[in-house]
Simulated assay, not measured.
Amino acid sequence: MIKYVVIGMVIGYIFGCCQTGYFVGKLNRIDIRDYGSGNSGTTNTLRVLGKKAALFTFLGDALKGVFTVLIARFWLLPHVSGINPVAFLLLAGFGTVLGHNFPIIMKFKGGKGIATTGGVFFAVDPRMALICLAVFIAVTAASRYVSLGSICMVTALPFILYFFYGYQPVVLAVGIIYAVMAIWQHRANIGRLIHGNENKLGQKVK
């Protein structure tokens, strides 16, 4: 069982290392990490390069999570026993988030993993992804802070997992790991939110 968990996470990590925002930036003759917040995720791409570039970045980052879960579900899961199937798929997907956040081929400087997390949860159970999206949209629309919407979305993940799958300790633990990772990646944003100088949605950065 452990062997297949490791294989799934390694496959996920390899997918995660493909940084959509970086490639979109290069098509626009820049390194996206040299601008704005310095990461290669959707929000920074939106602020630096605009909506079209951000859309491509979001889709690419989300699809990494989808592809990982599909591979884990149809190729690895039939050989696995002794672990909750949902936990197994989420662990494989978490490898993708790790690859996205800390890509070895880019000196571990990646994004924050929100779109990739959304792709993972969509592939595991679209119902969960719809609730995540609703939380993100509601909070972001009310506050105009993408970071706050992202933080609230990931904070809701363990509760969403509990709602759909009940008290499954391993599943809930993996959900908490996703939330902790995303909140850690947003630690600078949290500091700016506290001090009132976080960039709002639609605000351009240099």
Rank of each mutant, 00 (worst) to 15 (best):
117 T>C: 13
164 F>M: 07
50 G>H: 11
201 L>A: 11
81 S>K: 11
1 M>S: 13
80 V>K: 04
28 N>R: 11
194 I>H: 12
5 V>Y: 05
195 H>Y: 14
15 F>M: 15
172 L>A: 07
10 V>G: 01
33 R>V: 03
103 P>S: 06
125 D>H: 05
165 Y>N: 03
167 Y>G: 00
85 P>I: 09
170 V>M: 09
97 V>N: 01
96 T>G: 02
188 A>G: 02
12 G>L: 12
184 W>V: 15
29 R>A: 02
96 T>M: 03
150 S>N: 05
152 C>R: 13
98 L>G: 05
174 V>T: 11
131 I>H: 08
83 I>F: 06
28 N>Q: 08
79 H>L: 11
6 V>I: 15
188 A>N: 13
144 R>M: 10
86 V>C: 01
65 G>E: 03
29 R>E: 01
159 F>R: 04
173 A>P: 03
57 T>L: 03
61 D>T: 05
154 V>I: 12
135 V>Q: 02
24 V>Y: 10
4 Y>I: 00
168 Q>K: 13
194 I>D: 08
94 F>D: 01
175 G>C: 13
63 L>G: 10
77 L>C: 00
10 V>D: 10
140 T>D: 01
174 V>K: 05
55 L>N: 06
169 P>Y: 03
193 L>N: 09
46 L>N: 11
105 I>W: 15
69 V>R: 04
40 S>P: 05
140 T>E: 03
104 I>T: 09
159 F>W: 11
37 S>W: 07
152 C>F: 15
66 V>A: 07
154 V>P: 01
186 H>M: 05
46 L>D: 00
152 C>K: 09
206 K>Y: 10
40 S>Y: 04
57 T>P: 10
29 R>H: 15
134 A>V: 15
151 I>A: 12
128 M>T: 05
150 S>H: 03
189 N>D: 03
175 G>T: 06
126 P>W: 14
201 L>E: 12
42 T>R: 10
138 A>R: 00
18 C>R: 11
205 V>S: 15
177 I>M: 14
122 F>M: 08
154 V>G: 08
26 K>T: 04
83 I>G: 09
179 A>R: 00
67 F>I: 15
175 G>S: 12
156 A>C: 13
5 V>H: 02
191 G>Y: 13
129 A>M: 06
129 A>K: 05
101 N>L: 03
196 G>P: 07
84 N>S: 15
112 K>H: 01
89 L>F: 10
110 G>T: 02
168 Q>D: 05
23 F>S: 07
79 H>G: 00
23 F>W: 14
57 T>K: 06
68 T>H: 00
179 A>F: 01
78 P>Q: 08
8 G>A: 14
88 F>V: 05
21 G>N: 09
69 V>D: 12
63 L>A: 14
193 L>W: 04
64 K>L: 06
